[in-house]
Design a protein around this nucleic acid. Structure first.
Length: 503
RNA sequence: GAUUCCGUAGCUCAGCCGGUAGAGCAUCACACUUUUAAUGUGGGGGUCCUGGGUUCGAAUCCCAGCGGGAUCACCA
């Protein structure tokens, strides 16, 4: 491995420390009495309580003044300044801890423990006056140095997206706002869990490795189990398993599921992503819309403190109630055309008139979906429910109670993207078998996303599933909106990337 | 998968009408006992993504590849 000049110097420093009898990676614990945040928050009200501090953090900057120095240490909560005075940490004649260890052998990036008391400098910076200092971990690579001036401008920010995603640890160290995004992501999940547990629903776990993949239209990852000598797929959804649990008698079950889809990647798609799916017995999709509204409004408040969330150039308001359009209404609203009674030929002409490309393989449902995607979805910035989809597009949804050719399904659209997808679940086993068979036909015609026929799932339905409403919500997409992130890679710690070339 | 932009020091970037590789920060040396983008002086550091080609001469022009971003297609 080719070492840079700075890496060579740090290894030499490591050797010198060892020669001085200093273990650069000591095993014993270092007591933490206060976080940086606690010191900064409590100093004004209770300075007496901060007379005896034991603290640890990473050296982020150093300002050397000769026989004294200031440095910023970063812990999980933020940064705090320390004041290191030579005669304070070296009480006797031997000044080598300061002159040699502190000034020469420690670097930015090193993790040190300090003991001392909190005070405020002439400049008004709450700091730790250090009486004792110990190296806890030596860094062998230089950190990118990001500086912030008095006006708050960031200088030399560590911005290269490739390096930020590949070395997320480094991104987290030098870009504190990144940590915040993931704290907010955790809050979203916590908020959903609290909300659903509060309603009495059970959080469950279902298989990631599935002999048949189902519950969505997508291409799967394929793998192999050696002992069983069988092909397994990484799940593309957990829908069919959660419905089996409803058959089994649970009132409501939900799961935060890592799903895997072997498809294109862009700033809205990562090959593995997180979905929350929930199924509730004896409910319908109207009921589920109300639940969704209530839940997402609460998430926004829990995560951002407000129902209004800035996302890119738009301010999105999750306050209930959200607008509701049927798909036909939405198309009429945005194009002025009522397609509800148009047959396939007329519809095809309508699409052409609107400039929406269609081909002969498309059925009625697909054409409607295309028109909606082209002409309506891009305009739906504020959270909006779109209801009643064509039956062809929804093989797991129950036929509409009063509108022929449609199913009881809704999506919530927000920022021109699908936020969730839900139906009154199809619980008629014979109808479900027919729908699967139609999917098989699509598969035979080369549709790689067509669903497989799941005989065990049909058997479960034949034992009787209560009327049920189910919903799937993309957690990554939701996190993007709630954290104002432009790319899915910004809300996933380790987004998928091509292999790095060997050094 | 298509189009397009990008790849130069540890980090951020300049250099790109071809002529010995630059800046700021970081690093190293020295000075400095309340600084805060600390300061001052001096020094070192490069497979200019990789491989070909054109040329007397390529970071720069051309071709191919690798990696990344954006847009489009597909999709959540």
């Amino acid at each position: 491995m080719q070492l840079s000049e700075q890496e060579v110097i740090r290894r030499q420093k490591l050797d010198e420390l060892i020669k001085l009898g200093i273990n650069p990676y000591p095993a014993d614990l270092w007591e933490i009495t206060h976080s940086s945040k606690q010191i900064l928050e409590n100093f004004e009200s209770n300075p007496e309580g901060l007379k005896d501090i034991s603290f640890a953090g990473r050296i982020m900057s150093v300002r050397d003044m000769g026989k004294a120095a200031f440095a910023f240490l970063q812990d999980s909560q933020g940064k705090i300044q320390i004041y290191v005075k030579r005669d304070e940490i070296c009480k006797g004649e031997d000044k080598s801890l300061y002159d040699l260890v502190w000034k020469k052998l420690l670097d930015m990036g090193d993790i040190i423990g300090v003991k001392g008391y909190a005070f405020k400098t002439k400049m008004g910076e709450i700091s730790i006056h250090v009486s004792e200092l110990k190296l806890l971990s030596k860094t062998l690579r230089p950190l990118p140095v990001v500086k912030q001036d008095a006006e708050g401008n960031i200088h030399d920010a560590f911005t290269d997206p490739e390096q930020r995603y590949r070395m997320r640890y480094l991104d987290l160290i030098v870009n504190p706002q990144v940590k915040n995004v993931f704290v907010q992501r955790a809050k979203i999940i916590e908020s959903i869990r609290n909300f659903l547990n509060g309603k009495g629903y059970l959080e469950v776990e279902t298989p990631v490795l599935q002999p048949l993949y189902g519950g969505a239209a997508a291409r799967p990852f394929k793998t192999h189990h050696n002992t069983l000598d069988m092909t397994l797929y990484l799940r593309i959804a957990n829908e069919l398993y959660l419905k089996r649990l409803i058959v089994g008698g649970f009132d409501g079950v939900y799961e935060f599921a890592k799903d895997f889809r072997n498809e294109g990647m862009d700033r809205f798609h990562n090959p593995e992503f997180t979905q929350m799916e929930i199924y509730v017995a004896y409910k319908d999709y109207e009921w589920m819309m109300n639940l969704m509204e209530e839940m997402v409004e609460k998430i926004a408040i829990d995560v951002t403190g407000s129902t209004e969330v800035q996302s890119g150039e738009h301010k999105i308001n999750f306050k209930r109630p959200w607008k509701r359009y049927s798909m036909y209404e939405a198309i009429q609203h945005f194009t002025g055309v009522d397609i509800s009674n148009q047959d396939e030929a007329t519809l095809k002409q309508t699409a052409k008139n609107l400039g929406v490309p269609v081909d002969n393989k498309m059925g009625r449902g697909k054409i409607i979906d295309e028109i909606f995607g082209e002409k309506c979805e891009p305009h739906l910035i504020q959270p909006t429910f779109i209801t009643d989809y064509p039956v062809e597009m929804s093989p797991l949804a129950k036929k509409h109670r009063s509108k022929p050719g449609l199913v009881e399904r809704f999506e919530a659209i927000c920022n021109a993207k699908e936020l969730c997808n839900a139906f009154s679940e199809l619980n008629d086993p014979l109808d479900q078998r027919k729908r699967f068979e139609e999917q098989l036909q699509l598969g035979l015609r080369g549709d790689e996303e067509a669903m497989q026929l799941d005989e065990d799932f049909l058997r479960a339905l034949e034992f009787g599933m209560p009327p049920t409403s189910g919903l799937g919500m993309g957690i990554d997409r939701l996190a993007m909106i709630m954290t104002n992130s432009a790319s899915i890679q910004d809300v996933i710690f380790f987004p998928q990337m091509r292999s790095e070339k060997k050094e």
